[in-house]
């Protein structure tokens, strides 16, 4: 494939995933806030039912989406198994921390506000990395 076109396609895809992550971050900031104090205020006021309404669909759909994305990563033979394992453990760990932290915040463990922010940002970055990894290896097939 022509190198300039390859660069353009990669740039377009990277822009897309960065845009998606930025939208997620912007939405989180507008709804919840940016500091651990805002996160504590937002989740501290929520009832368990309100919290479940957010956590349940996220847990269900993101786990299916992760399975779909990671199973494609597993099929790519040009990526070594250490990198694949790292991506899988990292994504699922951050995903569980991100989803479960609000529960601990409502139980009064305010420290989880910091973990929630780190897990949220980390999950977005890790998912971007995996998406770009899969796309980069897919592009090699069209050479």
């Amino acid at each position: 494939m022509n190198f300039k076109i390859l660069q353009f396609v990669t740039l377009a895809f990277s822009t897309l995933v960065i845009l998606q992550a930025s939208l997620g971050a912007l939405l989180f900031t507008r709804l919840v806030g940016f500091t651990p104090h805002d996160v504590n205020l937002y989740y501290g006021d929520k009832s368990l039912h309100g919290l479940l309404e957010v956590i349940l669909p996220h847990t269900l759909f993101i786990s299916i989406a992760l399975m779909a994305v990671l199973h494609f990563l597993a099929f790519i033979q040009t990526i070594d198994s250490r990198t694949k394992k790292r991506a899988i453990y990292l994504l699922f760990t951050l995903f569980f921390l991100d989803q479960l932290s609000p529960l601990f915040i409502t139980l009064g463990l305010e420290f989880f506000a910091v973990i929630k922010i780190i897990a949220f940002v980390g999950f977005q970055i890790a998912l971007l990395w995996v998406w770009i990894l899969i796309f980069r290896e897919t592009l090699k097939l069209t050479k």
Binding site: V17, Q20, A65, V69, W131, F135
Partner: peptide, 16 residues
């Protein structure tokens, strides 16, 4: 944000 998440996954799967 919701639309784009689904559409990027669809794109990755179909493009792959």
């Amino acid at each position: 944000h919701t639309d784009l998440f689904g559409l990027i996954i669809t794109f990755i799967l179909i493009a792959s």
